[in-house]
């Protein structure tokens, strides 16, 4: 029976939310295909029977549990390639996340399969999967179809986790001989939190700052406005990686997903990996000096101008309005 194999990432005893989305999506699609959805997990003793079985609630049938290092892609490629070949899965599907890109690409190379990334929709057509992905900075959508095996890597939040129905998956331990090169990368430290522990998820008003703030001190402008609005400050990966603002404030693919009442972006270009974390905000306002910045394509109010001129006056005007 052909089927879909997915990978579930876990950390500190919990399965990743994007992985649960992938399992749910694969379960839905495999039902339409008349096949089954199975899952691979890699880790140590933290992969309890119970945790693995719980994937059944999202539609997984067999959970293949492999002893191995968690958080690195290549050992997972070894495991998934072996299981796909032994069991005859036709597709691998991943939720949006960094590791899915690496594993999916490695699998495509190993199995000589077709691969599509940033997928926003998958459907069944004549008994096969077809995947849609936006291309050229989201200005077009293209559909991928696969010659033989297909590897589908979702965009962040593209696949939603279903309500678990309490079913339990069969857990099967599998021994995998890792490739020599797969063992040559080793995790020294995982999940380090850099900077202060700020809370942006509960804020109704977010002022988000990007590289356009110019320097770390530029965040003061964002903080002043956030204070006036009664909200919090968020950031892009570019400025977090540069050490200007704490990681806990990052929005996007490898950061948080938010949907506040107001999302005001200052000096943010609007890269896809940022957009996926904030596009469901109720009201999006962007200030950017470049009229061609992609963020203007998905903002409700776009202001073309220099944030250094606009933000201080805006803060004063908001304060005045609230006081009045």
């Amino acid at each position: 029976m052909p089927g879909i194999l997915t990978y579930a990432l876990h950390y500190e005893g919990a399965i990743n939310k994007n992985s649960l989305g992938a399992v749910s999506e694969a379960a839905k699609l495999s039902k339409e295909l008349g096949s089954q959805c199975d899952v691979v997990v890699l880790g140590g003793d933290d992969l309890s029977e119970e945790l693995c079985q719980s994937l059944g609630g999202y539609g997984a049938q067999t959970v293949y549990r492999v002893k191995g290092p968690e958080g690195l892609a290549q050992p997972v490629v070894d495991a998934m390639a072996k299981i796909m070949e032994d069991q005859g899965h036709d597709y691998a599907l991943f939720g949006g996340g960094l590791l899915g890109f690496e594993i999916g690409a490695g699998l495509a190379a190993r199995l000589r399969a077709g691969v599509t990334m940033e997928v926003t929709e998958v459907r069944v057509e004549d008994g096969k999967l077809a995947a849609e992905r936006p291309i050229l900075q989201d200005s077009m959508i293209s559909t991928s179809r696969y010659e033989n095996r297909g590897i589908i890597i979702g965009r962040l939040n593209a696949f939603e986790a279903s309500e678990p129905d309490g079913s339990s998956a069969t857990v099967q331990d599998v021994e995998v001989q890792f490739s020599e090169f797969s063992t040559k990368a080793t995790m020294i430290e995982r999940g380090e939190q850099r900077g202060a522990d700020v809370n942006i998820e509960d804020a109704d008003f977010l002022v988000a700052g990007g590289r356009g703030l110019g320097k770390p001190e530029g965040f003061q402008l964002a903080e002043d406005l956030a204070d006036a609005l009664g909200g919090a400050v968020a950031a892009t990966r570019a400025v977090v990686d540069a050490g200007w603002y704490p990681y806990a404030a990052q929005i996007g693919q490898t950061g948080k997903t938010v949907a506040p009442k107001l999302y005001l972006a200052a000096g943010i270009s609007g890269a896809i990996q940022h957009k996926v974390g904030m596009q469901s905000s109720e009201n999006i306002v962007a200030i950017n000096k470049d009229a061609n910045a992609p963020i203007f394509e998905f903002s409700d109010l776009g202001v073309v101008g220099d944030l250094n001129k606009i933000l201080p006056k805006l803060t004063e005007a908001v304060k005045a309005k609230k006081a009045g």
Partner: peptide, 22 residues
């Protein structure tokens, strides 16, 4: 190549936001 790309189409039309030039 193991994947065929086709059926190019524009994304769903989204009402354009308001723009203010400062």
């Amino acid at each position: 190549s193991q994947v065929q790309c086709g059926d190019f189409k524009p994304p769903p039309e989204k009402a354009g936001g308001e723009i203010i030039e400062d």
